[in-house]
């Protein structure tokens, strides 16, 4: 189409694997834009992220340094990439990288890259370890939780909990532990990967509901689609889900975005307790979820809206969406030649 605007968007989270990152879903939304003609620059941490090999979705891929190597390494790499690609917007899709992008934002703005992401304060306030405070402040029920830094603290803290109990990492991973030994195993497993603290959380028996939403950073909820997970994989990820019409969920999401002036995509994870019917907030993820394409399918293209907001285009908030649309996740074996793998592993770009 001639009248579409050309734009270059860089996206992370191309790991569309069994516990998928949101990158590929975000790209699908962008590619369907009526407003933009989008060129996609994939930013990959690992050389086997499937998105790297999806030629129809991703135009160019660069490897970037893992967040733990620090702000300077990332800035240097992105500056190099920017000189070649003239990126207009970056959409980060990992929790663990967000702090780095928050710090980098002013530097990236200077080299012409726009971002719509939460502020440091918003990011920290919703950290899993701070959920109790968060619940009090926003008047939202949260499961009892406690952060621990050592195995001794874990043992002490567990005395206050009934089993089963949920053991969670700061950024990722959550396991249900049925005994103190389970809990210790998970503590070591998670802390080896993501460091301290580890969060112990009360187990709520019920059904999980999720909302994918977008805030403009000024207090307006630009869109939101609630979903019920209809089936889970053995890793606890959504296998299938269905969009639902629940004003309570939408109100909670709207209250949060309005009060916090959230900027960027987010996912709210809630549990409706079986016995009481009460809603408990489990997590707020500071990015789009892997199932964000359901929102696109329901008529709200959140990734496209995020790009428009980042580029200061006029965007109207969307209220309507199709209820009862389902997503079903499937896996698909791509056939790839070795040369692409060689390119990315030797040169870090392809």
């Amino acid at each position: 189409m001639k009248n579409k605007k050309d734009i270059t968007v860089a996206v992370t989270g191309l790991n569309a694997i069994d516990s998928p990152g949101p990158g590929v879903a975000v790209i699908r939304g962008l590619k369907e834009s009526d407003f933009y003609n989008v060129k996609i620059v994939g930013l990959a941490y690992e050389i086997l992220e499937p998105g790297i090999y999806m030629d129809e979705l991703v135009d160019k891929v660069y490897q970037i340094p893992i967040p733990s190597s620090g702000f300077d390494a990332m800035l240097e790499r992105l500056t190099y990439i920017q000189a070649k690609e003239k990126i207009d917007v970056i959409i980060p899709n990992f929790d663990a990288e967000l702090m780095t992008f928050i710090k980098l934002k002013p530097h990236l703005n200077k080299i012409g890259i726009h971002l719509l992401i939460p502020t440091k304060e918003q990011f920290e306030e919703r950290l899993k370890g701070n959920l109790n405070e968060f619940g009090k402040k926003h008047d939202i029920k949260v499961p009892q939780s406690e952060s621990v830094y050592s195995i001794n603290e874990l043992e002490d803290a567990l005395e206050e909990f009934d089993y089963p109990v949920v053991i969670k990492g700061k950024f990722y991973d959550a396991y249900v532990a049925h005994s103190i030994n389970d809990a210790k195993d998970y503590f070591f497993k998670i802390s080896a990967k993501w460091g301290a603290p580890i969060i112990i959380q009360e187990f709520i028996k019920g059904h999980e509901f999720n909302v994918t939403a977008l805030g403009d950073g000024k207090g307006v909820m630009m869109g939101a689609v609630p979903m019920r997970k209809t089936f889970l994989t053995d890793k606890g990820k959504a296998w299938a889900g269905i969009s639902i019409d629940d004003p309570k969920l939408l109100k909670m999401t709207n209250d949060f975005i309005t009060k916090s002036k959230w900027g960027g995509g987010l996912e709210i994870e809630l549990m409706k307790e079986d016995k009481s019917g009460d809603l408990f907030l489990l997590e707020i993820n500071p990015r789009f979820p892997a199932w964000v394409y359901l929102a696109v399918g329901c008529g709200q293209n959140h990734p496209e809206m995020l790009v428009k907001l980042a580029m200061n285009e006029e965007v109207k908030p969307l209220k309507k969406y199709d209820v009862g649309k389902m997503f079903i996740r499937y896996s698909y074996d791509m056939i790839c030649d070795l040369d692409k793998y060689e390119q990315i592993s030797i040169h870090g770009e392809v």
Binding site: Y45, E46, I47, I66, S69, E76, G348
Partner: peptide, 8 residues
């Protein structure tokens, strides 16, 4: 991660 992971 390959060499790009540890530039600094």
């Amino acid at each position: 991660t390959s060499k790009f992971g540890e530039l600094s």
